[in-house]
Computed example of a mutant assay.
Amino acid sequence: MGDPSRVGEARRLAADVAARLGFDAIQSGRLAVVVNELGNNLLRHAVGGRLLIGARTIGDGVAIELISMDQGPGIADIQTSMRDGHSTAGSAGQGLGAMQRMADDFDIHSRAGEGTLILARFYRERDSRGGARRLPGFAVGAICLAAPGERVSGDGWSVSINGGTAEVMVADGLGHGPDAAAAADAALHAFDQPRPPGADRFIEHAHKALRGTRGAAIAMARLDAEAGRIRFAGAGNVIGRILSGVTDRTLLTQNGTAGVQLRTNVQEQEIEWPAHALLLLFSDGVQSRWQLDEPSLLQRDPALVAAFVIWKFCRGRDDATVVVIRRAET
């Protein structure tokens, strides 16, 4: 984000996404202002800045998400910086506070000397009072990035929520580029269509569905909020982690590649899901061994947690995906 022209480019991209998804003029205007503020903040204040713009379905609705990340200098006092009129660069100082008011969801994490993450989310669907229509049950956040130099990601992810249960799947097509994306798309199609119940049986089902592609590493988890249990299965190097203030458990998949070679009788694990724990699934574009040294992040928006993992632990040479899910606050 070192070139001022990139701010206008980001604003035009966000406007195009909003128009294609049917956001109204007021929502699109708020989105444009926040894109502009985030981009200019990266130019004025940050080193190694990056602005991500994405959209995803939430239930039967749609949201656009903006994530700003940089490598420093960070914000020493976030609460002071959120006040209107505060500025460290001689500007009007309206940025962070204005962004928080304009976005439907807003979250920020920063550490002096290390950098800053900012999330701003905008919902298309509104409730009867004009506010954002959020769904109860589970909170989900995800980042899916293409490998450097590629226009499409060879990873894919999807979440299906039904009352107090949720199913989440991540697929990592072998290699990267269009052929890897085709394999991930085949896994997504298998997940979104009628399929056998159970994580283990889904992996076997996906293995058949991916024949004829270059294959993919794949993992699926079924979360039961009431029972506090997770059933998990997979093949290849998609990894799961359960994280809380007292729990850090890694969920490993078996050897194999869906669509190419898979051991018969896929094994399914059943694991306790503590009430405040996060489930993370991530592809091998993210380092396999890392520690979350920011315990306060466990209480933040799952999209900000996913961004933190990408920010700190992305290998930077392959497609990278992180999906984070927790029970939503009631």
Rank of each mutant, 00 (worst) to 15 (best):
R263I: 06
R211L: 14
S158Y: 11
T264C: 06
F106P: 05
G8C: 01
M220W: 01
T330G: 13
V17F: 15
S91L: 15
D104V: 14
Q79P: 00
S110H: 03
A219V: 04
R111F: 07
A307Y: 00
I53E: 02
A55D: 10
C144M: 00
D155W: 07
M102E: 00
A225H: 12
R56E: 11
S128L: 13
P136Y: 02
G48M: 04
V47N: 07
D84E: 07
D200V: 05
V140D: 03
V35Q: 10
W273D: 06
G163Q: 10
L223N: 02
R151N: 09
A221H: 05
P274N: 12
R317C: 11
E114N: 08
T253E: 03
R326L: 01
R121S: 13
A306F: 01
L31V: 09
A15G: 14
E294P: 02
L210A: 07
D104A: 10
L278T: 07
T88D: 15
Q71V: 05
G149T: 07
R241F: 02
T213W: 08
R263G: 13
A221F: 06
I75P: 01
W273S: 04
G115L: 08
G316K: 13
H189K: 14
H86E: 10
W311C: 03
D107N: 07
A235D: 05
R231H: 13
D84G: 12
Q79G: 09
D248M: 06
R326H: 06
A180D: 04
D104S: 12
M220N: 12
R317G: 12
C314N: 10
F23I: 07
A221T: 07
R133N: 04
Q299R: 15
C144K: 05
S91W: 08
R300H: 14
A225I: 08
C144N: 13
A216T: 13
M169Q: 08
S158M: 08
T57F: 10
I242Q: 05
V159A: 11
